[in-house]
Design a protein around this nucleic acid. Sequence first.
RNA 1: GCGGCUAUAGUUCAGUGGCAGAACGCCGCUCUGUGGCAGCGGAUGUCGUGGGUUCGAACCCCACUAGCCGCCCCA
Length: 430
Amino acid sequence: MATIKAVRGTRDLLPPDTNLWNHVEATARSVFARYGFGEIRTPIFEATELFARGVGEETDIVSKEMYTWEDRGRAESDRGQSLTLRPENTAGVVRSYIEHGMAETGMLEKLFYIGPQFRRERPQRGRYRQFWQIGAEVLGPPWSGSDSALRDAEVLEMLATLLNELGVKGWRLALNSVGSAEDRQRYSAALRDALAPVKDKMCPDNQRRAETNPLRVLDSKDPNDQEIIDGLPKIADFLSEDSRTHFEQVKAALDACGVAYAIEPRLVRGLDYYTRTTFEFTVPDGSGLGTQNALLGGGRYDGLSEMLGGPKTPGIGFAIGEDRLILTLRAQAAEQAAKKLDAFIAPMGVAQNPGALKLAQELRHAGLSVEVGDGSFRLRKSFDAADKLARKMIIFGEDEVTSGILTVKDFSKGEQEKIAREELAAALKN
RNA sequence: GCGGCUAUAGUUCAGUGGCAGAACGCCGCUCUGUGGCAGCGGAUGUCGUGGGUUCGAACCCCACUAGCCGCCCCA
């Protein structure tokens, strides 16, 4: 009979890998807490319309990558509703913000999330159909200071701190401003005009983009088209006074904090809701990501709340590709020191099993990590198992029970000592 | 969604038309309370799935599925 396997583009995360996942998430939580972020958990599926309106009907994500189905509820109210597994989390967070009237506090909200997202793409290294994002959003009514450049810089500085604390090497921050929605509109029109006479000479992909989304032409990697692209109008020339000032303020604050960045006029992000500041953190070749070298991306989305029918709520946020972060850490890290248990108890004979379990209970209650072997194991087998799992092995046999003195082998030193049972927990902590 | 490469033991892989293999790992014994070394023995398996060619297919052909690499796009 055919065995059932994890569906394409999904995978199991197993120990010891999950240790690294937990480490990454714990570090992120710790950093976020220091910057005043609280955790939000939104549903894994939402009304399809949320993403259509928020992320943008024309984006690849919405037009061809979503897992969407029609609900079959009994109630008239939910029958036939179109639902979608979330392809990203920002729209859900903003929906929740509006729904719970968080704007009414007049305060800035700082929210972070960690969770799976779903996109139906061709799987590849660093790209899965169920993938994890660690993200955060800063949002609030305009009078909360949510549109201040200070917040952009704070978020970027926080990301630099997080990557450094995780030990990511060689990261690079690419920064750009795509301007307000109006700036973008004008720039897009200018690009279309500039491309019209020359697009026939470009590759088919770029010809298509010139029509549908001219900003994306800037991203093109096609070497033959670079000359044309270099000659296109620059976004910087289309920024309004406000947008320009805002961008300058972001840069000034980053300079003050010593966060290095590279201005990249061609950095255009694909989601429709981005305005003004956009950014991306990449890692160098050889960091385990292949061509998917974007570790995280984000930007400002001053109009998103209104697109979803909410009050004017400027915001800025980012999403880290946790799968990619893990790949990078694994590729960059020298041999990961395997986490070992504090002790392995080897009962000598099945008659000692109950007593061995009792000893394990005592040690575990004392805060130690302990595994128990089985009395049927030969001593040699116990040694083999213990050496793989634990730093020390406790021999638990008749002699030890009657004398109350336990034999403890320390694998790192290769030494063996006798320790009284009352002192065992304390001794194992060293 | 498009193109290329790949799929054999738990793992890494060899085998390119004639008995299904190696290394590591696993289990047992030498060796019933002192292992890791060594020696001996053992199990590894629908050769990704289905079909075709052939006296005979892991090997050649077709389809499918999955993985990897690139494109598109994105985290």
